[in-house]
Every structure is written in C-alpha cells, then in structure tokens.
Design a protein around this nucleic acid. Structure first.
Length: 728
DNA sequence: GTGTTGAGTATTTTT
DNA sequence: TACTCAACAC
C-alpha cells in the first residue's frame, strides 16, 4: 500500500488526478520529483497499470537514474517503467523504426569526441584550417542548422549569417561544405549524432501514421519532468506520442529554472502546452519543503532581479536555519582550502556524511583546483559529468577494438586504434588512405586493404598496415566463440594494451579497464546470450557502469549547476562566484544575464540546510585574469549573510593575492586606487589586465613593471586605477 | 614519414 | 592546466 499521507493537499491532487492533461507549475523544492515518482507508483500500484505502458521523461541521465531508484524503492517487486531522457527514449524508438528512413537498426551514435574527430577529418580533406572556424564551433553551427532546419543554401543576408554565429560569406562556404560532408559521412557509416536521435524520431512519427499510432497505443501515461527546458522538437515528439483519444499527459516545470535556452528551451512553452491541450488542469506548488528560510531568502532575492519573469516568492514552514555563509578568499587556492576545511568540520562536528555535501560550479574546468585540495585532504569525492566513464581514452580504445570484432569496416573504430598501441602508422598514411577512399568512392576499410597493393600508391611501406589488418583478422577469429568479456581480455592480451598504458605512465587507468571488464561481465550475467554487438548497443547512451555508482555513496559530489538540477543536498557549496566565471563572460562580455541568474538560482535552491557561497580574488589559475566577486552577490539579500575572509597566510602565495580584504565584496570596484602612493622598487603589484608584477623602476609618475610572460616589462602610469598595490 | 618537444593559446552549460 | 601546432630529430 502506497503511503500518500505525507503529501500536502496540492501534492495529493497532483498525484491522484490521473485523467486528462495536467500542468504543474512547481517552484524549486516544492516536491515535484516526489509528486512525479508518487504518481508513477500510484498509477502502477493503485490503478493497476502496466509499468511498460508508462513513460517518464527526464532531462538528464542523473535524474532518470534517481527516479528509477526511487520507484524501485517504493515498489520493490515491480518492473520499472520507461524512464529516460528524450534522447534515450528516441533511441529506443529508432532501434525499432529507423529502417523507414533508410538507416539500419544497428546504427551507432557518436559522442562529442568522435564528432570532433570526424569534423577534423573533413577539415583535412577539404584543406580547411582549424583557425578558420574551430571544430567545436563548427559542431555548434551544424547543430543549429540541423535543429532549426536552417536552409543553408538560401542564406543571403548578414543577419542570417550572424544568427548562425559566422561573420562572412567566405565562412559560409566552409560551413556549407563541412555540413554537407558531415551528413554524408554519417549516412554512409550508419551513424547518428545526438540531434539525429530527436530529428529522425520526429520525422518518422510525423510521416508515418501507423508508427505514430503504434506508439500512441503503447503509452497510456506520459509524464515529463523539467518541462521548462523542453524545446520545440522535443515538444512535438511528445505531442506525437500522446494518444489524442486519451490525453494522459502530466508535465511539471518551473519557469525560474529554465537553464537550457541555448538548446532551444523557450519561455512560451507553458502557453504552447495550454494551447495544445485545451482542458488542461493547472496546479501550482509553491510551498518549499527543501530549504531553510535563510536559504530561500537569499535565493528569492537573487532571482527577483530578473525582469522577464512572473513575480513569485517561494515560502517555507521550515526553520530559519543557520546563516548562509559567504567566503571571499585571496586566491582560488584559499577558496578550495576553505571549502575543504568546512567539509571536514561539518563531518566531524555536525555529523554530516560526505554524501550530504555537494560542491557546485558554473563550468567543468573549475573542478580542478577544488579537486586538488580535496585530494590532499583525503576527502572522498566524485565528479559528475566532466569525463564520463565511457568517454575515457582507454575505454574508448578498447570499445573500438570490440566494435571491430563485430564490424571490421567501422571507420571511426579503425582510425581510433590503427596506431594504438603505436605501430608506425601515422597521420600522413591515414590521411592518404582517407583521400584515396574518397576519390575512389569506397570505404576507408576498403582503401586500407587496397593500400597493400604496390600498384596502388598510397604508402611506401605497407608492412605496418598489413600487420594491423592481420591482427584484426586474427583477433576476430580468436574471439568469435568467446563471450564479450573474454573477447576483451583476449584483445588486451594480444595488443599488449596493459603494457601500452604503462608505457604512457597511465598505470592508474588500468583500474578503469578492470571496471569495464566487470561491467561487461555484469551485462553477460543479465543477458546470457549477449553478444559484443548487443553490449555495444546497450551502452550507447550510458555514461557510467553501475559499479561506479557505489563509490559515489560515500563521497562529496562535485558537478556543474546544470547537472545538479533536480537534485538536493543538505549542504551546498557554490564555488567560484566570480565575475566572468559566474555569470560567464565570453571575450569579456556577459550575455544572457537572466539565464545566468536562473542558473545561480537553481544552484542556491539545491541546498536544504546549509549554503556556502565562495569566491576568490587574485588571478584565475587558468586565464590569469584578475578576479572580482560576482555581481550576483551584490544582488542577493545579504543582511543575513555571514561573511568570512580567508587567506594571506603564506608568503609563497603572495604574488597571487592582492585583494583588499577590508573592503566589502559589494563595492569591489571602488578600491582600486586607495593606496597608490609610495611605491618602491621590488614591490609586488597587480594589474587588471597583466596580472601580478614586480616594480623594477620608478620615474616620477611612471613605473616600470615586470609582468609574467607574455607581457614582460611595461612602463605604466603610477596612479592609474588599473594598478593595484598589494598588501604586505 | 613518424614521433617528440616547446611555445603559444584558450577554456559554458548536455544529450 | 591541457590542448594544438609548427619545427626538428630520427
């Protein structure tokens, strides 16, 4: 029997009103995930629906996993329903129906890295320099073209160019070429990228009434989490999946938590929903159960700075709680060290578990300096996101070999391992084979085989290629009768992969290889008939094998705010709250400030009991740019903020620290010039642009200052506001 | 042709 | 710090 007694009356209604379209507008921490899970459980347990007829769409893999676990806890003996991201759901649909648009159902999906390698290949063949348009940017442009159905052929105005993010018709020519080649490569390799998953599903459902009909009958109930981040294509896919004769759709979202406009989320989605489903019941959840009053006050005050927004404040019956702490440190090193000290204290004195604590930041690279400090304090931690297990170099290498066992024509896999471990087949040879394949309209694998013939002038020394092809052939024979995990072990043995890792000083990565073997063995236990092909398909959108998850349970969690969306932690540290980092600035410009603010709002509202905001002065380790506190601090209701300062304890760190710790963070711009008096040779100063420097000469009102490379010695005006004297 | 080294440079967010 | 690119040694 399901226990519904803990739900408030709005939540209860949202759980039990099971017929017809429903839209729940729910603020952060108002129990929307709980409502969603309860509702799924209610449908299964109380109304007797077949779990397989229920579809729950989440926004991240992390959220999908969490929901799966929650439902499994509520209903231990029941099959888990379809739960996944739009991409994962589309993948399932496509495996069944993709043949209708001329792909074969064993297609592969390429990730970022492979996508980037493919683009680089195309660049090389087209003689395009990476300097013209960087591959990462090109991927973004192609994504835009595909997702917005931009007709590249018809572009004729500068405005249209700008919308794509390019600035000349010269560049447009490159984009056209690369886009066309990219699509052709995907098609001929039976490859889909992440966007294709959505686009193809959309196309198939749109054009095939029978298929649409099949899926509409298949799903009796559809639930959508994080609805505010849905884009047009996703919304239309959703519409196709909903049975028009029996509209049972339930969407929950919070406009204040829209943080994916860069991927097409748009403010009007709630109206579109109401338009599409005329008799929608709208429910509102605005009582927060998650956070203390102090935390909510800070969060509310920040987000109220957004203008494009319906005014609303979250309230809570929770206690006032401890003060929100704001710590400004003299350097990123001190910032990390402050976070670690606090964690140690929280665990020791306040009896928190490591797993109660999360450290959030705006961008992945910021985890680095925190990570270092956690390590030296022996605090167990787990980083979500940045480098996923299945994206690691050693894992991808071995999976590429495995893929060649199932498909020895696979170009991406061939190119990946042809010289791993080293067999003296370099870039030039690979390029020539590619070029030959392209000119003669054959696959890379075919050209590779042909290159052995002396009359085909591809390479002067076919021997290494011969060795490689022999190796693959041999491996294929040897592994044919083996289980996937045994096949992998054979590959490792024959290629001497462990020795190869060791030769690169990557011994520690051997653990990951063992993890992979364990993951495959786990797959085999679940699927006694499982094949290599089957395994590779199963992991298509996976990020981590299940075994890895265990390690997280006793660790501090690190992640970007985007990954944290939908989760809650008793203690949240929001790190690197610096201008230019959060809000992000690109080329010194902040854009889309309202969205940045919403991202910050999401971060703050993850906290249940304790919230720490940290920033640092000095210079960024990464860019060497000077650091100032984020404007978001200024915008918060700071009356209840407990301010802590940190740093200036070690001489060795002095050249990174110049922040005047006496001045409040809220008017950091004002204190440039206060002590621009008696400079002496040897004094350390900091410059807004050039960073830390040492005075090497003084002439009247001019200073010769030696900065780090590439700036060198510069002569600057003494009392200029760009120069800041260090405290000693 | 391949591999190594050093200098220079650039760093949103996810599937 | 990490990644790319050009220059050099084998």
């Amino acid at each position: 029997m399901l226990d519904l007694s803990k739900l408030n009356k709005h939540q209860l209604k949202a759980v039990t009103a099971t017929e017809g379209p429903i839209l729940v507008v729910a603020g952060a921490g108002t129990g929307k995930t709980r409502v969603l899970t309860m509702r799924v459980a209610y449908l299964i347990d109380e109304l007797g629906y077949d779990p397989q007829k229920i579809l729950a769409i989440t926004f991240t893999n992390k959220a999908a996993n969490e929901m799966r676990n929650r439902i499994a806890t509520l209903l231990p003996n029941v099959n888990v329903p379809w739960i996944g991201t739009y991409h994962a759901i589309c993948l399932k649909i496509l495996r069944k129906n993709v043949d209708t648009i001329g792909y074969s159902s064993n297609f592969t999906v390429i990730d970022d890295e492979d996508q980037s390698l493919l683009i680089r290949d195309i660049y090389k063949q087209g003689n395009i320099s990476q300097k013209d348009i960087k591959p990462a940017k090109m991927i973004g442009i192609i994504e835009k073209i595909k997702m917005n159905d931009v007709g590249v052929e018809t572009i004729s105005t500068m405005q249209q160019l700008k919308e794509l993010g390019i600035f000349s018709f010269e560049d447009l020519k490159i984009v056209k070429y690369v886009h066309q080649r990219y699509q052709a490569k995907l098609k001929s390799g039976n490859i889909l990228d992440f966007n294709d998953l959505l686009l193809f599903t959309h196309k198939i459902l749109k054009e095939n009434i029978d298929i649409r009909d099949y899926w509409q009958k298949h799903f009796h109930y559809i639930l959508v989490d994080e609805f505010q981040d849905t884009n047009i294509i996703q919304f239309e896919i959703l519409n196709y999946l909903i049975n028009p004769k029996q509209i049972n759709v339930f969407a929950v979202g919070d406009p204040d938590q829209t943080i994916y406009t860069w991927r097409g989320a748009y403010a009007n989605i709630f109206n579109d929903y109401l338009e599409s489903y005329k008799n929608t019941q709208v429910m509102i959840l605005d009582l927060n159960y998650r956070s203390t009053k102090n935390i909510l006050k800070v969060a509310n005050s920040l987000v109220s700075n957004n203008h494009e927004r319906i005014k609303k404040d979250l309230s809570t019956d929770n206690p006032q709680g401890v003060e929100v702490v704001f710590c400004k440190s003299d350097s990123q090193y001190y910032e990390a060290s402050f976070i670690c000290q606090q964690i140690i204290e929280l665990v020791k004195k306040e009896k928190y578990q490591y797993s109660d604590i999360a450290i959030l930041y705006r961008s992945n690279y910021l985890s680095r300096f925190i990570e270092q400090e956690l390590m030296s304090n022996s605090i167990p931690y787990y980083i979500y996101g940045s480098l996923k297990f299945y994206q690691r170099m050693e894992i991808k290498d071995l999976l590429a070999y495995l893929r060649l066992m199932a498909d020895d024509q696979n170009e991406i896999a061939l190119k990946r391992v042809i010289n791993v471990p080293r067999r003296n087949i370099g870039e030039v040879t690979i390029d020539r084979v590619s070029e030959y394949a392209r000119k003669n309209n054959m696959t890379f694998a075919q050209a590779l085989a042909l290159s052995l013939r002396m009359d085909v002038e591809i390479t002067w020394s076919p021997n290494p290629i011969m060795q490689f092809l022999k190796l693959i052939h041999q491996l294929k024979e040897n592994t044919q009768k083996l289980s996937p995990s045994k096949a992998l072990q054979e590959i490792i043995k024959v290629t001497k992969y462990q020795e190869y890792l060791a030769s690169l000083d990557f011994e520690s990565r051997w653990d990951n290889v063992n993890e992979l073997i364990a993951a495959i063995e786990y797959y085999e236990a679940k699927n006694p008939e499982g094949t290599i092909e089957g395994y590779l398909q199963e992991i298509t959108l996976y990020t981590d094998p299940t075994e890895i998850k265990k390690a997280r349970d006793q660790s501090v969690s690190l992640m970007t705010v985007h990954v944290a969306k939908g989760s809650e932690y008793r203690v949240i540290f929001l790190a690197a709250l610096n201008e230019g980092i959060f809000p992000v600035a690109i080329n010194g410009q902040t854009t889309n400030l309202e969205e940045e603010r919403r991202i910050a709002y999401v971060a703050l509202t993850r906290a249940m009991e304790r919230l720490y905001l940290t920033c640092s002065a000095g210079h960024s380790f990464v860019t060497n740019a000077p650091l100032y506190p984020s404007r978001f601090i200024k915008e918060m209701d700071t009356k209840n903020l407990k301010v802590v300062e940190q740093g200036m304890k070690s001489i060795s760190d002095v050249d990174l620290s110049w922040y005047d710790s006496k001045s409040p963070a809220t008017n950091f711009e004002d204190n440039y010039n206060k002590d621009a008096v008696a400079f002496q040779i040897g004094d350390t100063i900091a410059h807004v642009v050039f960073g830390a420097g040492v005075i090497v000469g003084i002439k009247e009102n001019l200073l010769d200052i030696a900065f780090k490379a590439p700036y060198g010695v510069k002569t600057l005006v003494k009392n200029h506001k760009a120069i800041k004297r260090m405290k000693s």
